[in-house]
């Protein structure tokens, strides 16, 4: 079963290490402006949400691409963009409902998360486990267990 890049904003402290190591892996420079992952900072609430490609099952970016440059990597399940086929029309960027495909003006036409070939660098470095790379069933089971734990402790306190 393919793994999923799982994001838990509750654990995110806004350190943006994910952006730094992503840009370093992809460009060999530290440059958050070129990272494929972004931590959105809500200044008033002081809250953080990392955002990157969700690797949709039915990617609209793939549907809209006129040259077939958007493909699925069979090994990882990542939606990838072939540099050879891409003509830089940016239609994928325009239709992505999440804003997770970008053109960073660096010469590369459009860029997005490709799960680093199955070993996402952001997950390697994330210090709080706000980012994890897990089989989808493991993630849902872990969350079920966490919520069930809370449910159980409340049940024990309440008399019927």
């Amino acid at each position: 079963m393919n793994k999923t890049l799982v994001i838990d904003p509750k654990l995110c402290t806004g350190c943006r290490l994910c952006e730094l190591v992503c840009s370093f892996k992809k460009t060999e420079t530290y440059n958050p402006a070129r990272a494929r992952i972004r931590t959105i900072v809500f200044e008033d609430e002081i809250a953080f949400v990392p955002m990157t490609c969700w690797q949709c099952e039915e990617p609209v970016c793939q549907e809209v691409c006129p040259t077939g440059a958007v493909m699925r990597d069979e090994g990882t399940g990542a939606v990838t963009i072939s540099v050879e086929r891409c003509i830089g029309c940016k239609m994928c960027m325009m239709v992505c409902p999440f804003g997770n495909i970008q053109s960073d003006g660096s010469g590369e036409l459009v860029v997005k998360c490709d799960l680093c070939g199955g070993d996402p660098e952001c997950v390697v470095f994330c210090p709080t486990k706000a980012l994890q790379y897990l089989p989808a069933d493991k993630f849902t089971l872990a969350r079920k267990k966490r919520i069930a734990g809370k449910f159980r402790s409340i049940l024990e306190e309440v008399e019927w």
Binding site: K10, T13, G14, C15, R16, L17, I46, A47, P127, T128
Partner: peptide, 17 residues
Amino acid sequence: LIRNRACLACPIGCGRV
């Protein structure tokens, strides 16, 4: 305390929201 906040690239996150 609401949550911890980190400065850039910091795995400690001593900041207190």
